[in-house]
Nucleic acid binder design. Structure first.
Length: 573
RNA sequence: GCCUGCAUAGUUAAAUGGAUAUAAUAACCCCCUCCUAAGGGGUAGUUAUGGGUUCGAUUCCCGUUGCGGGUGCCA
């Protein structure tokens, strides 16, 4: 719709001098005023005239009327009508269809791309689970939001590097090594995978409560690992391998892949240089035995760089990693997708990077999201109120499989399994991405697995509808000229025309839910059109051609939007 | 204590400072001789609270209340 706003703004600018006795308005100034009316019956684009009232020294009602008059003779395919201080514009059916559909078909899968990222690189740090710990619903946010942001940036033309910053270092490996030697067996873990590692980890904590000496043992094993003890290194690498095998199953179901799995361990030897730099610059202060960077000037608590025992901390590693990534990838932006609980931490170390004189500090972006609870209760590993991602996905797939068997009994087993996975995963992903990311999300299982209303299955069903109709319409050519005859067609065209703006808005706010809501609008508009307009069966051949074209356009744009939020394009359902 | 996020129908969510606050869901009702009823339509129901800025506030600012997060050796 931006295109139409431009046309309107330019025309008004051209005629404003006449309408207001010599006072000319700038096209940009007008374009910023333009908005969309709350009700389609009012028009397609609206200009509230209240703000102009002061500079033009006329009432908004007068301004709207004068402009209506001035625009009366304009031949731009848009008509104007004044109403209560608003000037409402309506785009001609023919121009609306022509502009929108020709754009969609000309650009195809790249329709809607803002093309702002060409030649630029974005690094995205997301998902980043801790090795040998359960991968549960709490990881859904960073994983899905992160990947969706990656897709959005790729769509805009950025070169993207997705990094899974694995939690693959720290004393938990000492614990795991101790627990494994005491209670574990190789065959058991080879067979049971990460669950067995988690069991060992949990058992360690339980036993350590009674026997504090275990913690000392764990510390010892970890320091052996740090000194490259071959046996411990072997175990450590094996734990990582077992964990990654498990994660990759979930990632592949979600359609997610990473360009790098460099975890925390990778940066251990890159920290000393940064610590040295901090020291040389006089930024490090010894406080209660620990080394800190004082941030009181910025109204923040100090950033801890070294513990009292001289060992490093999370911010230390993050700084080293950022420096490395800047050198390695030359990013124009480096995005971190984590829970909002870490907001202060990121603000602190971003500030330290700035104080260190790295001029790219402003390219670091923290994208926080709200915390997840399940059925109204907080996630808690201890009370067992956790749902593993793989279990959630399995539940969703199982449910969809049952419904598909019932609704579409002719489908083959193989096909059903494939679709159940696409739709089951889609339900969960769509449910999550329906929320503004910053808001806390209460994961209600029943709703997440629901298939009617504003859900993944609903939009995937709509997509399948367009596919099946296109299949049936094979051989029907594009019309010479589009003939739009109903409100439903107009509304569908307008939603399609909004897509580029929505993509830009989603990118600007790092907000995938903008795309989710757009998909719902498009699906609703298409279904209304589908229900109220005969497509293939209409008697007028030109109308059939137009409606088939509309279906194809809806199919293209739905498909593009699906990919932006990691939804699979379901050809049948 | 200090810093910070959130608050919209019974519920889950929308709304670049603009017109009559929008959907879904649960409830009640209607529509398969028709391109997939996993669909379409109807009825009913909402901005926590007190101020301020503004021609106009769900949106911006301040206070209050409620819920969450953070606040030095976890990540």
């Amino acid at each position: 719709m931006q295109k139409f706003k431009k046309i309107i703004a330019e025309e008004i600018a051209k005629r404003s001098a006449d309408a207001f006795g010599g006072t000319a308005l700038e096209p940009n100034e007008i374009e910023e005023l333009l908005e969309y009316p709350p009700d389609a019956s009012m028009g397609d684009v609206a200009m509230p005239c209240f703000k102009l009232s002061r500079t033009l020294r006329r009432s908004p009602i007068q301004i709207a009327l004068s402009l209506e008059e001035a625009l009366a003779g304009a031949d731009i395919g848009v008509s104007a009508k004044a109403l209560n201080g608003y000037l409402n514009f309506k785009v001609d059916d023919a121009m609306l269809a022509d502009q929108v559909l020709s754009d969609v078909f000309a650009e195809g899968a790249s329709y809607g791309s803002p093309r702002i990222g060409e030649g630029k690189t974005v690094v995205l740090d997301y998902s980043s689970p801790n090795v040998a710990k359960p991968f549960h619903i709490g990881h859904l946010g960073t994983t899905i939001i992160g990947h969706s942001l990656k897709r959005l940036h790729e769509f805009a033309g950025y070169k993207c590097v997705g990094i899974n910053y694995l939690g693959d270092w720290g004393t938990q490996f000492g614990k795991l090594i101790v627990a494994y030697r005491k209670w574990g067996s190789r065959e058991d873990i080879e067979k049971g995978g990460i669950d067995k590692l988690v069991e060992l980890y949990v058992r360690f904590h339980k036993e350590a409560e009674e026997n504090a000496a275990l913690n000392d043992e764990a510390r010892l094993e970890f320091s052996k690992l740090e000194r490259n003890d071959p046996e411990n290194i072997e175990l450590w690498q094996w734990f990582i391998k077992i964990s990654l095998e498990e994660y990759s199953k979930t990632y592949s179901q979600l359609g997610i892949d990473f360009d790098s799995y460099k975890g925390e361990s990778f940066y251990t030897d890159k920290m000393p240089a940064q610590i040295e730099k901090l020291r040389e610059m006089g930024l490090l202060k010894l406080d209660d035995g620990a080394s800190i960077v004082d941030l009181s000037e910025y109204n923040m608590p100090p950033c801890l760089i070294l513990k009292r025992d001289g060992s490093t901390l999370y911010p230390t590693r993050d700084i080293a990693a950022a420096v490395y990534r800047k050198q390695e990838y030359g990013f124009d932006k480096c995005i971190y997708v984590t829970s909002s609980a870490q907001s202060l931490h990121f603000a602190q170390w971003f500030k330290v990077v700035e104080m260190m004189g790295y001029d790219w500090y402003s390219e670091l972006v923290h994208v926080p999201y709200g915390t997840v609870s399940i059925n109204g209760e907080k996630l808690a590993t201890r009370t067992g109120n956790v749902i593993l991602l793989k279990d959630l996905i399995a539940m969703a797939i199982e449910k969809v499989s049952q419904i598909t068997a019932e609704k579409n009994p002719d489908m083959s087993e193989v096909e059903r399994a494939k679709i159940a996975e696409e739709v089951g995963v889609g339900a969960v992903v769509f449910y999550y991405l329906s929320n503004s990311r910053i808001k806390d999300i209460n994961f209600i299982l029943e709703d997440a697995l629901s298939y009617d209303g504003n859900t993944g299955p609903y939009v995937q069903y709509t997509y399948a509808r367009t596919c099946s109709l296109i299949e049936k319409a094979k051989g029907i050519p594009a019309p010479e000229k589009y003939s739009v005859t109903t409100e439903e067609e107009r509304e569908l065209l307008k939603v399609l025309a909004l897509f580029p703006e929505k993509v830009s808005a989603a990118l600007e706010a790092y907000e995938p839910s903008v795309i989710t809501h757009f998909i719902l609008d498009l699906a609703a508009a298409y279904n209304r059109f589908y229900h109220n307009c005969q497509i293939l069966t209409h008697e007028d051949a030109e109308i059939v051609k137009t409606r088939v074209a509309l279906t194809k356009a809806a199919n293209i744009v739905l498909g593009t939007a699906f990919e932006l939020i990691c939804l699979k394009k379901t050809k049948q359902i």
